[in-house]
Every structure is written in C-alpha cells, then in structure tokens.
Design a protein around this nucleic acid. Structure first.
Lengths: 147, 147
DNA sequence: GCTTGACTTAGACTTAACTCTAAATGCTAT
DNA sequence: ATAGCATTTAGAGTTAAGTCTAAGTCAAGC
C-alpha cells in the first residue's frame, strides 16, 4: 500500500516538485524510502496532504501548517492550541465565505448588465432598464459608477 | 471630491505602496495629479479599486484584470469578451465556494473532535463516541486517519 | 523661517510558494 | 543489454504581488 511520488502527485493534485518541496520544508515528515531510495507515500501521507490542502485553501500559510504539525507531534499537551487554531480558522473561513457571497452578487449583476448590453450592442442599458439602477446601488453602493 | 493617496489607501484597504504599484502596472489609468504633482483619487477611482478587489478576491490575476481594463477602454466592440469573462469568473467562484463548504465541514469536524479531546485530555475520542467514525468517513473519506 | 509630515520618483529588495536544472541511479520492456 | 522513463539530489531560478529606500518637494503650523 504505497505510492510513488508521481502517483501521490496525481492523487493530491500537486506536482512532484511541490511534494519534494513540502518534504524539504518539513511539512511531510517521515516519508518512507524503499531500498532504491525512492519515496513511498502511504495512505496516511495522502490524507495529510488533503488536510494541508484544506488549511492552505482556507488561507493558512505553510509556516503555520508547520506549526500545527509540530503541535500534532507534541502530543496531548497541545490539544487546546490545536482546538483554538481550528476555531480561528473557522472564523477566517466564515469571513471569507461572506466576502465571496458579496463578490458573487457583484459578478451576477455584471453578467445581467453585460447580457443586456450584448443584446443592444452598447452600454446604455439603464435607459431601457431603469430598474437596474436600484440593484446597482444595492450591490455596489450608492455612488458607484459602472466599470 | 478628491482623495490623497493616503485617504484612498484607507478607503480601499490597500497601502499607498500598493496603489502606486497598481498605477505603475497600468491598473489605475488616468489618475489625476494636482498642481503640486500629488495624485488625486476620485470616487470613480475608489469604485474601480473595489472592482479590482472583487476580481482579485475571486482569483483573477492582476494581469487578467489589466486585460479587462483594456476591454473596457476599447469600448462597445468588447462587450462579449467582458460578458464571457464574468461568466467564467462566476464558474470559478462557484467551484471555489463549493470547496470552501467542504473545508468548513472538515474544520467543523476537527473542532468537534478537539473539543471532546480537550475535555478528556487525550485523543481517544472514538472509544467514547463511536458515532464520530461515521461522520469522519463522510467528511474525510473512508480511509482517512485523523491528523 | 523652520520643522513636520505626507507626498513624489526610480529602482532595489522581499516573500511565499513553488519550479526547474543537471547529473546520476535504477526499474521495465524490447 | 540497451533505450526509455521515473526517480534521486543540491541548489538555482521564477513568479506574483507587493514593500521599501533614498533623495527630494511641498503645504501647514509654530
């Protein structure tokens, strides 16, 4: 039950370069090597890569992920630090999700606007659709012109 | 109705350095200068910075934002490109939001786990709460160990 | 009229996170 | 047994996006 670096790369969506880089940085401790000196990635290693992806994807730096790893290796005395870390990560993530909701509203408005503009062939869509002004003000704020 | 670079920085959440950098890169064309040579940011400029923030926050590179700006300046002949750009950006954003939902589930599970572990003082929480195994499998996949 | 603080410029430096190069090693199929 | 391919290493290079430095200008307050 072991994967080469190439297989692990495919499973994780990272490049072999990146996996070696992560190991060099101490984010992948205890990667086994076979008799020929090749890395052997276990299912545990792949799972850990997925946890890294989650933390990285919610805005954590590799440096802080390393800190988490150190806490993991330190054992039960660091349970509270780890709990707190995940609670903070959750708050960050909530903020990020709210932001993305706002961006989605803006983008949807732009799509609506450009769809009409594409039909007309020009950008004077507020003349024929004055109700869009209301929506623009709600989504972009009162004074925002359209760019 | 004009802002200095410092005021514009506060309004946009970017540093004066970054604003000058954006101008140098061509992302802020036509910033006025007063008689003393100081930049004068208009409300339009601030609004454009907020649009940049939206595009950047949904994963667009400054280079591609510049492309959008070029289309804006090119006029009505590029309406379809712009529409397509926002449609693609929306698809990217949807994927990103789904990812964040998954990350949220993982983090929530970790918080649940570590909250119990913190009460017990150790990580053997599956013994006293075997129902967590089900949830772990759902959230992390079947073979995933807990890290 | 002098100091203070925000601004100006060109250009150098920083940081995070990869990404690649070169030379060597070692399975695998013909 | 040799060609082809993935792997290894150390270390150099790249990229995006800022961030800062130094030397100078300018308006405002004391």
């Amino acid at each position: 039950m072991g994967y080469t670096i190439g297989q692990a790369a495919k499973k994780s969506g990272l490049s072999p370069y990146t996996l070696r880089f992560y190991e060099k940085e101490g984010l992948l401790p205890n990667i086994r090597k076979n008799s020929a000196g090749l890395r052997v990635f276990s299912q545990d290693d792949i799972s850990w890569l997925q946890m890294i992806e989650c933390l990285k994807g919610t805005g954590m730096s590799l440096k802080n992920i390393k800190q988490y790893l150190a806490w993991l290796n330190a054992g039960n005395t660091t349970i509270n630090q780890r709990l707190q870390m995940f609670q903070e990560q959750k708050e960050k993530l909530k903020v990020q999700m709210q932001l993305l909701d706002k961006y989605m509203e803006k983008i949807n408005f732009k799509i609506k606007l450009y769809t009409l503009a594409a039909q007309k062939g020009d950008m004077d869509v507020y003349k024929s659709h004055p109700e869009l002004e209301q929506e623009r003000e709600r989504v972009f704020g009162v004074d925002n012109p359209v760019r």
